[in-house]
Design a protein around this nucleic acid. Structure first.
Lengths: 196, 196
DNA sequence: TGTACATCAGTGAACGCGCGTTCACTGATGTAC
DNA sequence: TGTACATCAGTGAACGCGCGTTCACTGATGTAC
């Protein structure tokens, strides 16, 4: 059958959305092309009309996922500063919804084992996240320390979210999130020089 | 053929060591039972004389890996305090050798998607790591803040190591490690109250 | 001491299954005449 | 306006392959007599 203008683009986006969610929820290796196409209401053979390979889909889906997270976190920071970004990132809601959450925390280690093109794309988005944080850090010292604090902050956020997800005790998981928020706020303001 | 006393135990350990290394280097899903047995110099059929299933091996191998890391980090901390532990964890050597490094950073997100028994075992070892850090935190405040700082420190260490491994630019990767070390030291000492 | 037998770690073929990828085909629609 | 044809998103069978797991078998050694 022949379809109207924009139909193919819509289908492509449907595949991409399914991939973006399921990769984050289940890991890349655990999600197959056939299952993904079934999610999009299609059969597996049609996949290669949209993407040259699964690895190409991985690149696109991860970039899309991180763009969504970057947009959400940018909004939070613009509304309530870094404190709001931190509260959102280390919230129970984010912990409980990996499929719509930060891909760095869900897929970072797995993506490190992927081919260079995929890694480069992922590294660039991680860079963008660090820059977003740096942009909202109080301007108290020179540029260098600024960037370092932003980098450590992202490491703390992502690492702590993973620990909170790994915990099998609910109360313990809450304590991990709270500990991360507290330490993140301490990094966000310059040491021994609280915000005015 | 029949083998001497301890032979089976030796073989089991050989399988476990191969699994512990390769899971960390390649991810659990990417490593097959047959390949692991070949690494240990055996054929795949014999695997089930040693472990009831691949999932049982995962549990044992991850626990072994973390015990090794805990032992190494305990030694560092006893020698040079938390500063030595931080320097070792966020060192280029640790970054470049995931196969002998911390399993939390290599496999945390993947293990979160494993069955409850595996998750519980992993969570218990993570707990032990937090306790190790807490034990070496300067005793300046009450117990609660202590534990929270140790938790955040582990999140920062693991998350930052992942970012350093994900970076595809060597210089950028060094900056990430340095940023993590600096922020970790700041968490290790109480805010606005430097160590005497 | 010499022979017959039991043990059991390890072998390798086979099981059903899902993977990523290829490809000849379908058939409703848009376009050309 | 009516007919013939080209387009191309999507179909579904098939490819070789590796997965985790099972199982009848092997054969060197320890043990019993």
């Amino acid at each position: 059958m022949r379809y109207g203008t924009g139909h193919k683009e819509t289908t492509r986006q449907r595949i991409l959305d399914a991939a973006s969610r399921r990769f984050r929820a289940e890991g890349i290796a655990a999600v197959g092309v056939a299952g993904l196409m079934a999610d999009a209401g299609l059969t597996h053979g049609g996949f290669y009309a949209h993407f040259p390979s699964k690895e190409d889909l991985v690149r696109e889906a991860v970039a899309d996922a991180l763009d969504q997270t970057l947009a959400r976190m940018t909004a939070k920071a613009e509304d309530g500063g870094l404190a709001a970004l931190i509260a959102a990132y280390l919230s129970p809601e984010h912990r409980d919804r990996p499929e719509t959450g930060c891909a760095i925390a869900c897929l970072g280690p797995e993506l490190t084992r992927h081919p260079p093109e995929t890694r480069d794309r992922f590294a660039a988005k991680t860079e963008a996240f660090i820059e977003l944080i740096a942009r909202h850090l109080p301007a108290d010292d020179q540029g260098t320390g600024h960037r370092a604090r932003a980098t450590a902050l992202l490491g703390l956020l992502s690492g702590t979210l993973q620990l909170a997800r790994a915990a099998t005790d609910a109360e313990q998981s809450e304590h991990i999130l709270a500990a991360g928020r507290q330490a993140a706020l301490a990094i966000a303001v310059p040491p021994c020089n609280p915000r005015p």
